[in-house]
Amino acid sequence: MKVLVPVKRVIDYNVKVRVKADGSGVDLANVKMSMNPFDEIAVEEAIRLKEKGVATEVVAVSIGVKQAQETLRTALAMGADRAILITSADDVHQDIEPLAVAKLLKAVVDEEQPQIVLCGKQAIDNDMNATGQMLAALLGWSQATFASTVEVEGEQATVTREVDGGLQTVKVKLPAIITSDLRLNEPRYASLPNIMKAKKKPLDEKTPADYGVDVAPRLEVVKTTEPEARKAGEMVASVDELVAKLKEKGVV
């Protein structure tokens, strides 16, 4: 079976985010960009499914600016077999909304016919946590979000999900959408030889027009502001002083 893994190119999680002074957004020019961490986990899981003999082919897809090619090369270096880049924006500041991403992914799924789509649970830039669920809706497929374990047997997958109350296990019929949570696995690093090999793996380039999908946003970003900053308070020298301060504030 084929596994499709959508990977997003986002600001690296270690970079300090700066809001532009004119309120138009976050400054993404000349900052380090990386694969969304949840998508690394998804790629790793897909590769493990292949290593277990469950999956036969792992296809990575990215939607965004043409530099997302680098993100796809990372996925290929980790072990994905081929990649599809859907160039949908000229400017890195132009984010494609989950609904549009889901529509493009649906078109790719219609062509590729994977049995599993393994997404990240959340892109760490827009923090939407929506694309996998939206894609499942558009396809009429089952969904198992926030996965911490995945077991595929025959026509179904058993997935343990991280939920507010603890853990929930569900069985979903394939084809299905699964979204990765942090504890699903620890992604591997690509080795140098594999990075070299990845350069030769196939990478198809497409546009939204090829799939007839309108990516115009439904949400207009009116402005982007910095949140209220917290000021550092005071250092206390002892537990006694801390207790006294907290009593003074009436919180204990």
Binding site: I11, K16, V17, V19, G25, V26, I124, D125, N126, D127, R218, L219, E220, V221, V222, K223, T224, T225, E226, P227
Partner: peptide
């Protein structure tokens, strides 16, 4: 809504 791990707050207007 907060974005970028709460490092920015976006005001969005929906046309839906």
């Amino acid at each position: 809504r907060p974005v970028y791990a709460g490092n920015a707050v976006q005001t969005v207007k929906s046309s839906d």
